[in-house]
Every structure is written in C-alpha cells, then in structure tokens.
Design a protein around this nucleic acid. Structure first.
Lengths: 264, 264
DNA sequence: CGCGAACGTTGCGCAAGATCAAACTTCTGA
DNA sequence: TCAGAAGTTTGATCTTGCGCAACGTTCGCG
C-alpha cells in the first residue's frame, strides 16, 4: 500500500492511498474502496465546494464520508429512487440518463471527476430526478442527505460554490434546448463531441481523446438522433481527418474545423 | 382608489390597492405602479417563499420592494445584462427567451403570476442568463440583488421554497430536452399547449383558454418548429374540435384527446 | 480457437417537416 | 375610414435524417 496521485479531471490529481488492484470478475480494477480516514485533507481542498475550508473542517467532512467504487456501466442510483445520499466523484465520468415511458434513453449531462452529483437535496427533492450511470470505472465519496443542511450551514463556500455548479449545469441544459430547437443533427453531434472533449479530453499524439469509453449509441442519446446517423457522420468526418475513432473510442483530431461545423 | 383583488395565477387572488386605470399610449392600462407601503401583508403570505413568515417580516420585505408595471411585449431584463434586481410577478405571464447568435429565438420557460423570477443571485450569477418578456401586461415587485443573501439568511423557508421552485423549473427543462429528443412535432406542440393551459388556463364556455395573448410564432419558439407547422396543426385540430383559436388566442376544448396526442 | 454478443457500417426508400411563395384576415393608428 | 402592419392560412416543393435490413468487425470468454 502506497500513496499515489489520483486523477481528477484534466491534469488535476488527488493524492491518496492506493490499494493494490484487486481482481474483479476476471478484470483488474484500478481501485478498491478506500478507507476514508486515511484520505488526506489535501484531496478535497482544491475542489470548489471545499476551497474555503481549513484542514480540520475537511477532516471532519472526510471522516463522515463513505467511499464506493462502481464498475463501468453500473448505476450509482436510479431515477425516482429515494435520495438517501449525495456524492462526490473522485475519478471517472458519470452519464446522467433519463428514460422515457417507452424505454428510450436520453443523456442529460456528463459529470467529470471532482464534482458533486446526486445533489437532489439542494432542490429539496426526496427522489433522484435521473439515473447516474458509470461511463467508466468510478470512485466516489458519499454522504447521507441528512448532512446536506449542516454542510451548507457550517461550511462557508460550500453552498455558494455548489449553487454555482448547479447554475453551470442549468446553463448547459439551456444550451442543449437551444441546440435541439435550432440546430441540425450534424451541428449538434459536432458540439456534443466538443463538449465531451472540453470536459474530459486527454491529449494524445493523434489529437484529443475522450477519456472514457463511448459508443455511437451514447452519442446518439446525447444528441437526440440515431446511432446510424452518428455512425455516418463519424465515418464522413474520419474520411476528412476531423476525427479518428475506434470501438468505444473517439479522438478529435481537428477541433477547429469541428467548431466551424457546429457553429453555423 | 379602492381595495381590489388582484389575480395571481389560477383562481388565486392578492388583495391590494387598485389605482384607477390610466391611459397609456392610447390604451387603458389595468395598473399603475403601486405604492408598496400601501400593500397589505396578506398579499405575500400565501406565496410559497413567504408562507412561513409573520406579518412584521413580510412588512419589512414589502417596504424594501419597488413596484413596476410593464406593457405586453416589453422586456423586464435582457440576456447578459448585469443582474441588479430579482423580481416577484404579481400579475401577468413572463416569457423567458433566449436568442441565438443568428437571431433565432427560443422560449425556455413561461412563468406564471405568484412566482419569483430573475433569480440569478440564487446561482451566484452576475448576469441574467435569458431575456424576460412580458407576455401580457405585468405587475411586478422587485428588490436589489444585495438583499438576496439577507433574505435567504433571515427569512426561514425563503431559501428552501425558492430552491424547490428552481428544482421544478430544472425538471421542466429536463422534460423539454427529452421531448425534443424523442418526440415528434405534433406531440411536442400538444404538450406545450397542455403545459400552458395547466399553468395559466382560464375556464370558459368553450373550454380552457390560455390566459395571455399567444401567437403561432410563440408556440413554434416553444417547440422548436416553424409557425407554418403550428398553424397547420392548429387548423387540423380545430377541424377535429380539439381546440378553438383566434388571433393570439387559443382555447383547448378537449384536453383529454390532446393528452392522448402528446402521449404516444 | 471458435462462438456469440456487442459494436459499427452502409445502402435504400420514405415521410416528416422545413422552406418558399402568395394570399387572406384582423387589428391599429393616423 | 383607410392604409399598412401584424398575424394566419394554405399549397407546392425540397431536404434531412429516420427506419429497416443486412453485413462486417472486434471483443470476451469458455
């Protein structure tokens, strides 16, 4: 057991205790559940909701957390389920999904590492409004909802920063609505890729790669189209050298031209 | 000058001082700006954000308010403008509109009487994220943003209820996104009408009427389609006895069948 | 190594709805 | 009272992107 840096978001790391990978269903898992009492205060201090707090305050927050890991594809919580906890995403990416009565899925949002999620209590909701799916393997901290009010009351900046984050998400949803109303499929797909790349892109030799596995179907659920159309678009773009994609993997090679596509 | 009941939303009234209608640009206006010191505390007490407060508290809130009226079509504030005030809508309906770079408009939301709006400070925004247009003649109260924090801190229930309202709006936006992704134009228009009727419908002999002037263009901006398509749909529905519409006026005669149209 | 499942590609035809164009109706203000 | 503005209707045409279907590819696992 040794101290390692834990990737949270683009180029940001959290220092923490790494347990040796354990076999999980014939597959090596990067993490095991972490003992929160061993986590260092410096893990949380760079994150906006905790940035104004001192070490003892963060210690107290950490000590009341539980840590959980999730396999890729697993649901952290389901739409409509009673909201018992709120979460902090330490590593991985969350796909926030809504399912229609007739079984169709719509991806409302992607949440990158380092952000709070499942924050139904901020709206005084007692049920989660959407399902949170692990887009890749996840590591989370979680707290019971009963701690929400005390956190907001006791920790300066926690409420403020959280509502700022919510404001950002609302703005993003607004943009989605506008895009869906006014833009064509090609533009929406282009913008969706750019958003993903901005939020959780990893620089590689070829270009910027989306850092979690993503299928054509996933992209279609983000843009309100079909996997066929997305496939056609990606093929065309690949021929043009705009992107490069393999199975469950998309690399944006020429962001600039993609912006142009999404812009007009 | 006499005390009258002021309509706020469906069947709900606020009692207040009615000034005699004044001529305004050759048109009789229902209201003149109201002297807030003459407003009775009972005006605010039934509204969710103020429901837990006693009379002296509400008095203090009222005394710090300014009242303003707006003509139909006027902008209360513009997208991107510095957020200096937040508002309470006493009467009328607000259309929340976003404009795309190329001039297209998208209606994000309608806000009925009795609700707070322009609450950018709740998200720590210093600019309004959208434009608020008066769909009909409006009467509002407004407070400087500097009072937001004190209100949340000093008045129990104010924050809670407000965030609940925001939660509802976020949920509605979510639904919009899902509708736009998965439903056809006909279903979206049907649902849009039902939403309007639910929020601000007035029972009449023919059916339930949308209580503010609304054009085909407006409906198309709500549903992400064109006024032509909306016109065709309304014509077809009118032939079927589902709705009845005149210039700037829509009455839903058979809500049940409209729900069926929007459902599948 | 070989099978099956999950993921991706591609061609074809069709229909929903946008766009273009023009006429019509209702309302407003001088 | 009358002209023009604003709102609505309707037809003709065209484009987008969806549905369907079949096939190709990659991966995981026994």
């Amino acid at each position: 057991m040794r101290k390692i840096k834990l990737l949270i978001g683009r180029g940001k790391f959290l220092e923490c205790w790494q347990f040796k990978p354990v076999a999980f269903k014939h597959k090596a898992s990067r993490y095991r559940d972490i003992n929160v009492h061993r986590l260092d205060e410096s893990l949380l201090s760079p994150l906006p909701p905790f940035s104004m707090l001192d070490r003892p305050q963060i210690r107290s927050i950490l000590d009341r957390a539980t840590s959980r890991r999730f396999d890729a594809g697993a649901a952290v919580f389901d739409e409509g389920a009673p909201a018992r906890s709120f979460y902090l995403l330490l590593d991985g990416t969350i796909r926030v999904v809504k399912t229609t009565p007739d079984g169709e899925q719509v991806t409302a949002l992607h949440i990158p590492a380092g952000q709070l999620f499942g924050i139904a209590p901020a709206f005084r909701r007692d049920a989660y409004p959407a399902t949170a799916i692990a887009a890749s393997e996840l590591l989370t901290l979680c707290w019971p909802v009963s701690l929400w009010e005390p956190f907001v009351a006791d920790y300066p900046g926690f409420g403020t920063e959280t509502y700022k984050t919510i404001g950002d998400r609302v703005a993003e949803m607004n943009n989605r609505i506008i895009e869906m109303s006014t833009q064509h499929v090609e533009q929406r797909v282009a913008r969706a890729l750019l958003r993903l790349v901005n939020q959780s892109g990893k620089q590689t030799a070829e270009g910027i790669e989306i850092s979690f596995p993503i299928t054509r179907q996933d992209v279609s659920e983000m843009t309100g189209t079909t996997l066929h159309t997305v496939s056609r678009l990606l093929s065309a773009w690949e021929k043009d050298g705009l992107v490069s994609s393999k199975r469950k993997k998309i690399v944006v090679c020429d962001p600039h031209r993609l912006v142009a596509l999404g812009g007009a």
